[in-house]
Design a protein around this nucleic acid. Structure first.
Lengths: 178, 178
DNA sequence: AGCAAGTGTTTTACTCGTAAAGTATTGCGC
DNA sequence: GCGCAATACTTTACGAGTAAAACACTTGCT
């Protein structure tokens, strides 16, 4: 009974399936199909949040903090607070607070804009860059391990489907805002 | 160019793909595959949280509150606070606070256990049950609409893959605790 | 019976995010 | 060049979640 590939991988039941069964019993007429996607995505995200933060926590970083540092690292140039807010999908106020802490810890530096004194430019310090580069491989290895229960083909199918869904959602939200 | 079925649905780019490309440019040696799943799940969950709450918000409920009411409704009998915490994957303290508010709003009732006076039993009031039954179809219709960008086959594949993944994750976490 | 350990729930102190108001600065229209 | 809307960021007030301590009660051991 190889569960790693090929065979009809009848996996262990997940909690969402049980919840859906309960709803079906109480409201047999309801179309509970969306729960099987949205409920599971939410639950997976919650579990990732708990599990995934383990390597980050060792470095004393929360995920939002790491996201901020990561945005600076991956764009490879300075960003303003509002750009950071956009990149990390968080509010400006949250970015302000996180920057304050990260600055105190010596992981980022700020510099005022010469032309427009309203704007600040934020960049990683050497320590900040080293921290990100040190954590990221560890973090990715950890995530790889979390996903390893799914066979490679399942993983790429899942990634593709999620990319599809996310593309649609983001397009729709952009449309709503416009 | 039918995007609804069959054809090579080359969907609109999602933001996670762009982020992964940036990382690849900076660290070409890194295996960024897990981001394409975990990053997307997290981002989808965040978008759902914003979007999905719209129908609930009209009823003045947050999602955690609705989850609590839903747990009472779908199990169709009374639950203790600790059972509610387990069902809704939240801490006991959070349940205590939510129960306080929901009780004040007349949506749930509490009753002490005769045998063991530490435990409380919580049940929906008629108003609470009516609220859940009124909102749920609306909520499901809304969720169906959110997912409608994905064709039916994609949806069931996605649900199955997520069920697989979630089953593995939950199994693993249970193992860690044990 | 009486006390220690265990269990169910609540309280407390704290962190973190947000919305809304506040501050500082720019640049447009006249 | 002067006022005023717009922009960039910060501050404030607050709501919600958590971990750890506190509380209330039960149960098992002697």
């Amino acid at each position: 009974m190889t569960a790693t590939n090929g065979g009809p991988t009848r996996a262990r039941q997940d909690t969402v399936a049980a919840v859906v069964r309960q709803w079906q019993a109480v409201h047999p007429d309801l179309d509970t199909a969306p729960m099987e996607i949205i409920g599971r995505i939410n639950r997976c995200a919650a579990l990732f949040q708990q599990a995934e933060d383990a390597p980050l926590r060792r470095a004393g970083l929360s995920r939002p903090e790491f996201d901020l540092l990561g945005a600076l690292r991956r764009t490879a140039h300075e960003l303003t607070p509002s750009e950071l807010a956009r990149e990390t999908f968080s509010s400006g106020a949250a970015v302000t607070k996180r920057l304050k802490q990260l600055t105190e810890r010596g992981l980022v530096e700020r510099r005022g804009d010469a032309r427009d004194r309203r704007v600040a430019h934020v960049r990683l310090t050497d320590a900040g860059r080293a921290l990100v580069d040190g954590i990221l491989p560890e973090q990715l290895a950890y995530e790889t391990a979390l996903l390893s229960g799914l066979n490679p083909q399942g993983q790429s199918e899942l990634a593709a489907l999620l990319g599809d869904l996310l593309g649609q959602l983001e397009g729709r939200l952009r449309a709503l805002r416009a």
